[in-house]
Design a protein around this nucleic acid. Sequence first.
DNA 1: TGAATTATTGACCAATTGGTCAGGATGAGG
DNA 2: CCTCATCCTGACCAATTGGTCAATAATTCA
Lengths: 211, 211
Amino acid sequence: MEAALRPEKPRTRIQQRNRETILEAALDVFSTEGFRGATLDQIAAAAGLSKPNLLYYFPSKDAIYTELLSTLLTRWLDPLHAVDGSGDPIEEILSYVRRKLEHSRDFPRESRLFANEIVQGAPRILDQIEGPLRHMVDDKTALFREWAEAGKIAKVDPYHLIFSIWATTQHYADFSVQVQAILQSYEDSHFADAEAFLMTVFRATLTPAKT
Amino acid sequence: MEAALRPEKPRTRIQQRNRETILEAALDVFSTEGFRGATLDQIAAAAGLSKPNLLYYFPSKDAIYTELLSTLLTRWLDPLHAVDGSGDPIEEILSYVRRKLEHSRDFPRESRLFANEIVQGAPRILDQIEGPLRHMVDDKTALFREWAEAGKIAKVDPYHLIFSIWATTQHYADFSVQVQAILQSYEDSHFADAEAFLMTVFRATLTPAKT
DNA sequence: TGAATTATTGACCAATTGGTCAGGATGAGG
DNA sequence: CCTCATCCTGACCAATTGGTCAATAATTCA
């Protein structure tokens, strides 16, 4: 049973190390070139391995990409999972924004890989989106709606609220070239400003109108 | 002089028609596959022409792509150009948001093509971004800053304001697959909701605090 | 109509790409 | 030290891809 779900675990140290090296290099290449744009030769070069050696550890280019995508998606969803009814609603949502922004700062390649996949029609991840992702969003929007009914946050469309959080936070990873070209900041210095700005925006949006 | 700036204008009717057919088909293909992912065969098939015939009208794959990109960029920037000091500041900015959202609804392929290019590091449009685009943004942020000083809009970072407008509006084109998977709306029906939501967000963000 | 210009194509090419395979190198365990 | 499994590679392959070219078809226009 276990074996059926996770058919292969790396056995030797070498396997462990090389699989990781490959995935790391592949993330670099796939995130800037997209699936079709990336070549095994590029990945092999980036990993410091020969192309046949890549294919000793992974059955195909597709397999590398798919593995990256699936591990990526869980991490992408994690912050949303953490949103629950325990704390102050507005602070809860603002924390989510903050976590997503940190995600963009700390894992920009993952964000770009995901962006590439979605922009191009999500050909190999659509079922994940229509399944788990959609369900979790449905869950959280229900929670947001409760909060709105109870007057704890302003009455805004919860789906579009989530979209706007995704859009504004991911922007700093996905469009970082543009952001840096405009701000002429070559480090991550602008993330602090971005956070301050987004806190203002979402606090203003979510604070209920005075009765 | 004129000729130097626009070295080649389509001469015959056939040229006019076929160049347009090709660009239209190429927009379809490039926007969903990215530059490297797209093939001349795909574009030729989509255009209903033979591959050598494509290359009779355009010198290379690159040339088709570049032509699309440059015409696209001007249209992308147009709405920002239209923002000036003539009207009420908040309404002026909200109009900009509305126009950008309409752009996403009416020209999603252009938006995705642009997104593809930027996500992948803007290899063939970076100078356009560092030049004209950045200058216009610098212009408009200066205007926003004046408005903020004068107390006509809230004091928010004008650069991040613009980023957030781009991010939230383009999201509906670039990530339309995701949006539609979550909302399960297969038409553009959600654009009206998105507009209402974004109007709320930016009005709340820009309305100055009561003194 | 007929000559000149423009449009179109099949056949072809060199380079690239994902992937295979037989055999050799390098470990780990006894 | 020997053996066996793991690891690695050069050489190779078929398919794809951007692009060329000579020859043919269609238009244009006098």
